[in-house]
Design a protein around this nucleic acid. Structure first.
Lengths: 235, 235
DNA sequence: GCGATTTTGTTCTCCCGTTCACAAACTCCT
DNA sequence: AGGAGTTTGTGAACGGGAGAACAAAATCGC
């Protein structure tokens, strides 16, 4: 079997991908991408939806439906060409280009993020590290040196940064957020435990470590209660 | 107005909280809790659903519905007693007790997590730091010293740990996960970019930094395309 | 005490996402 | 070439969550 293949529709473009992949699907595409990369590294040429689904930890029907939003990239009776699909998903997500990001707040977490190799390997490059503490400016972290928050505008303009990462304490988060937005950043990944308010055109995603633990604690507590209930009933 | 108040139903217990708060609601309770804590620190006694909702960044109808799953803790015409509601939510999530957690994989991220003060302040205490690298065992990080992965079983048993955090490279994640499960951990927070397979009784939540960035990149790309489309049409 | 006002708790409707199930499409073997 | 066997793509049914809207309940002013 060849890796190259011709697109089904001879028309100008596939209408399916035009405007609007469901949010839930978008959130899973990176997972599929990772699964495909793992398969490619093991020199797997073709994979069925069942194979891919189990590698990605989802149901195969869901995977097929997700992929159908992008276009018809599979072959019935065969499956999906790993490298071809990988490219199509990467293109859809926008990983055929490199995205410069700035990280604001170089504390423990910012440090870890600056050194995280997973960013670079997936098309994100750290354009700058920023901190408001003047004593820290100039310090070297992971091959970069820390810049002053005052240089934000210059950096964003010069490097065409559109994505910012906030790793500051909660109290500083909204202020930093405002400055990022003013500088022209339109996507923000927020690690600070704070609710950010932004204009409509700005996207915010939040990652909150302690919230995740609290959700686990809730379920853990329920397991314990349930067990106690069963035991009580058994007596 | 007094802070203390009597429960509405004189019966044995409120049936509402019995079994089953929607997952989406559970995920928001920690956010409400944080908003309430912030209000309490400013000595606010009472807050309406509107106040709380805006502090938590959600719609007030949604907040009221969420809270109604826990019980009827508000007072019509008045609002919610901040401290009382705070306690009720904390109890519901299971934060009236302390949860010991173990962190496995003390690299950049594990380091940051070990030093993160947000855990301790929300009822989670780090019981142990574990790493498979023998050269690292004994090293001190954030007031604790790193233990060997081989001590996992002892630690989990001795400290009654039910929550584990995985901050290892992807390749080690499944193995570490299996060891955690075998040792008796039944909730896992996974920072490694890998799909974990676990028995039914174990809960897993994943936090994936690069996936979050990829989702932002997708939307960022769409914004750019949309803009280009509008410009093209305008010509 | 009573009407006006405020704010909760809940019902109803709508929408998004998941899953099932099957026809269409492709390969392989004889 | 044709039938058997696979696997995709998708229509349809289903379930859960979001938001609007309103009745019930509490406070406040007179």
């Amino acid at each position: 079997m060849t890796t190259a293949r011709s697109r089904k529709s001879g028309g100008a473009r596939d209408e399916r991908a035009e405007r609007g992949i469901p949010e839930a699907t978008v959130a899973r595409l990176p997972v599929y991408l990772r699964a495909l990369t793992a398969l490619a590294e093991r020199d797997v040429i073709t994979a069925s939806s069942e194979d891919l689904a189990s590698a990605a930890g989802v149901n195969s029907a869901k995977l097929r439906k997700d992929l159908s939003y992008l276009g018809t990239y599979g072959t019935r009776g065969v499956g999906y060409d790993v490298n071809y699909l990988r490219y199509q998903i990467a293109r859809e997500i926008g990983l055929t280009q490199d995205w410069p990001v700035v990280i604001v707040g170089i504390g423990n977490l910012g440090h870890a993020l600056a050194n995280y190799s997973g960013f670079a390997s997936r098309g994100f490059q750290v354009a700058a590290l920023l901190d408001s503490d003047p004593d820290r400016v100039g310090e070297g972290v992971g091959g970069l040196h820390i810049s002053s928050l005052d240089d934000l505008d210059d950096i964003v303009r010069t490097c065409s940064v559109s994505i910012g990462v906030i790793a500051t304490p909660a109290k500083a988060a909204q202020d930093v957020c405002d400055r990022l937005v003013t500088a022209g950043v339109s996507s923000i990944l927020n690690f600070a435990p704070a609710v950010l308010s932004v204009p409509d055109h700005v996207d915010v995603r939040k990652v909150d470590l302690s919230i995740e633990l609290q959700i686990l604690a809730y379920h853990e507590q329920r397991k314990a209660h349930e067990l106690a209930g069963i035991e009580a009933r058994a007596i």
